[in-house]
Write a protein that binds this DNA or RNA. Sequence first.
DNA 1: CGAATGATCCGA
DNA 2: CGGATCATTCGA
Length: 156
Amino acid sequence: MKAARIVEVEAYLGGRDPASHAYRGLTPRTAPMFGPPGRSYVYFVYGMYHCLNVVTERDGVAGAVLLRGAEPVAGFDKLPPRALAGPGKLARAFGLTTEHTNLDLVRYGATLSIHDAPPVPASRVVRSARVGLNDHATTSKPWRLYVRGSPGVSRP
DNA sequence: CGAATGATCCGA
DNA sequence: CGGATCATTCGA
């Protein structure tokens, strides 16, 4: 069983967020983003990487959080350093594919699940612009959060 | 900096 | 259908 502590995330909304996959409405790929919260949204990008999101808004409203970085906790043997630092690397380390989209992450005993952890002190939390976006208007939103100094963060 | 690499979506 | 785009990563 593999486990990791999430240390970097980015928020994406629906119609008002041009950087969001859900910006142009519901499509087969983005359908999970419009579904009930607590489910996964996994997409394939750049022809070789998968990214894992957690759906956050109520059923019918698009919104999700992209998991961008984590620290290994259990189940990773001889993991190369920073192998979980980055959304593509994180998804790869857990062997995630689009088969893992729209799964219930909150259900007890689920194959893929997310859990509570001790709170991160506010002094360790950094807010910044989201990574990898072209549009200038969208980068103005400070919707990336990460743990200061964590080796699981993709980029300082 | 640019290549890798293919699913997705829009417009025609 | 065709082609532009892409919430990335790695290596020169």
